[in-house]
Amino acid sequence: MALQLDTIRATADRVAASHHLDLVDLEFTGGAKHRTLRVFLEKDAAARAEFAAKAAADEEAGLPKGVPVETLSFVTHEDCANFARDFGTVLDVEDLIPGAEYTLEVSSPGLERKLLRPADYTRFTGSLIKLQTFSAIENNRHFTGRLSTFDGTQLTLDLSAIKQKGKAKKALTAQTVTISLANVEKANLVAEI
């Protein structure tokens, strides 16, 4: 029986919603006896907005200084443990992962989370990101800069937001670069602390 990631993802979405969480990403790695299912979660949009409002009103909210509130997932160890217990039970009862042995890991996506969907680029406009493209732009496939705009299909990076290194420093003459979302191979936030 083959592993059906779409079914597992839909099940994770359903279980996460019951805990007021959103599924950010899910990945299955390894083989034989060393298989791992990693699930990355964050509080749902309503809970994140509530925490952000509390943080804005309370200087002593206990949030890291200098970290943009929107980049925080607000997921606690208790959230992860509760989700893992319920999701693990469903996986086992419905036999969604064939074979007896696998490890379930549940965590937040972290400060340097992956950007996977167009909604991620919209949400994190104004943040520092690092990305790699499928095809080169001005002889470069690796960029780091501030995501200044995203229109749903094209994103613009402000490269002057950070000091460029290596090939990027030599190759790029422009202060901004516009990249098609279809050309983005992988992208993630860069922690600003």
Rank of each mutant, 00 (worst) to 15 (best):
V93E: 15
V90A: 14
R146M: 06
A56R: 14
L128K: 03
G166E: 07
S127F: 11
L115H: 01
A56H: 12
G166V: 05
L147M: 06
T153N: 13
T153K: 14
P64G: 05
K163W: 00
V106N: 02
H142A: 13
E105D: 01
S73R: 12
L104P: 01
F134E: 15
L128Y: 04
A52Q: 09
Q164G: 04
V90Y: 11
G145H: 06
G126H: 07
L155N: 10
I129F: 08
L131I: 09
A55C: 06
H77M: 14
R113N: 05
A119R: 15
A55Y: 10
P64T: 06
L111T: 12
G152S: 05
K163N: 13
A161Q: 05
G66R: 11
V69F: 11
D86L: 04
P68L: 03
T122Y: 10
Q164D: 06
A47D: 13
S108T: 07
T153A: 15
G166R: 08
L96P: 01
L63E: 08
L96N: 02
T71I: 14
A84V: 13
L116T: 08
H142G: 00
A84H: 12
A49L: 11
A55H: 07
P98I: 01
L159P: 08
L96M: 09
K65M: 11
A52L: 02
K114A: 15
L104Q: 02
F51S: 14
K43R: 13
A56I: 01
V69C: 10
P98C: 00
A84Y: 11
T133E: 08
T144F: 00
T89V: 10
E78I: 10
V90T: 15
N82G: 15
Q154V: 13
C80H: 02
D86P: 02
A61W: 00
T153R: 14
A168F: 03
N139M: 10
V93M: 12
P98N: 10
E101Y: 05
F134A: 13
G152A: 03
A53W: 01
D92P: 08
L128N: 02
G152Q: 03
S127Y: 07
R48S: 04
G62P: 08
E78H: 09
